[in-house]
């Protein structure tokens, strides 16, 4: 396949950056999108240029590191996959492909297509856990959890922290990420004691990081590689309202 790439290049965090054009010729259809970039990069290097920098690691859709906005959509238009799972057979001969980073004020660009998503780590540190000292846990079967609750918790826990939800949201809101973690832990009896503290802590950290607000357009749900439903946002809203009320009056 022969394609044209329009790629965001930015030498470092403080550089202004711009879109540059690269040819991507003789690309095998079976290659993945990132393998296509590998091929382009190998040619750039051999021609003496600086390769296109992008984050990637596991290349099997689970680590959450890869983070490209392809033709305006984080990861890709097809639902349920990450950038590294996009295959070139989805494109057509002669296509022009726009490749941009995940854009949000809370995700500053490190270089080219790499961003700094530490804000997510800080949100988890603000309450996205269940405090349990190692070795102090009761027997695993001592707290039965209904299969449905376990499944719901799992659906939310499937989040890989890639940040596509933020990148897709026109407000760069992190509500799907925060909602997913809050729902995962709040749904389980183990997570109950810290529920209010968790919700208030994570939401405040989210706001402090400069993410926008949810305006219920569900773009996040549409691009989430783990297809997490925006229902987790509804539940987060409810849990937040309850927690904030209890905080005010109790």
């Amino acid at each position: 396949m022969n394609l044209t790439l329009k790629v965001w290049r930015q030498a470092h965090a403080n550089d202004t950056g711009s879109i540059e054009t690269y040819p991507a010729n003789d690309i095998p259809e079976e290659a993945s999108f990132l393998e296509m970039l590998d091929i382009v990069n190998e040619r750039i290097i051999e021609d003496g240029g600086d390769p296109i920098h992008f984050d990637h690691d596991c290349r099997e859709g689970i680590c959450g590191m890869c983070s490209l906005t392809i033709n305006g959509v984080p990861h890709t238009k097809d639902s349920g996959i990450t950038t590294c799972q996009v295959h070139m057979r989805k494109f057509r001969e002669g296509d022009t492909i726009w490749v941009e980073p995940f854009r949000a004020r809370a995700f500053p660009i490190v270089k080219d297509l790499m961003t700094d998503r530490s804000a997510f780590d800080r949100i988890i540190a603000a309450g996205g856990y269940i405090s349990v000292r190692t070795g102090s846990a009761p027997d695993a079967n001592s707290i039965p959890i209904s299969k449905d609750d376990a499944n719901d918790a799992f659906d939310a826990a499937a989040c890989i922290g890639c940040g596509a939800c933020v990148a897709a949201c026109k407000n760069a809101s992190a509500m799907l990420f925060v909602g997913a973690k809050a729902n995962h832990l709040n749904k389980l009896p183990q997570g109950e004691p810290e529920k209010d503290k968790r919700v208030l802590g994570m939401v405040r950290q989210m706001d402090a990081e400069g993410f926008g607000n949810c305006t219920n357009q569900y773009e996040c749900e549409g691009v989430c590689p783990k297809e997490i439903s925006a229902d987790v946002i509804a539940k987060l809203n409810r849990d937040y309202a309850a927690a904030a009320t209890r905080e005010a009056v109790e």
């Binding site: 329009k6 965001w8 879109i19 906005t69 033709n71 305006g72 959509v73 238009k77 726009w98 941009e100 854009r103 949000a104 004020r105 809370a106 897709a168 026109k170 407000n171 760069a172 809101s173 400069g210 993410f211 926008g212 607000n213 305006t215 219920n216 357009q217 569900y218 773009e219 749900e221 549409g222 691009v223």
Partner: peptide, 27 residues
């Protein structure tokens, strides 16, 4: 207030803009 915060949350816009789900009214 929300709109102002939301505009500030994405300083640089995408060169290629697209949506997958958002309804016309919501935009």
């Amino acid at each position: 207030c929300l709109v102002r915060e939301n505009r500030a949350a994405r300083e640089e816009r995408y060169a290629c803009e697209a949506t997958v789900k958002a309804s016309g009214s919501s935009k």
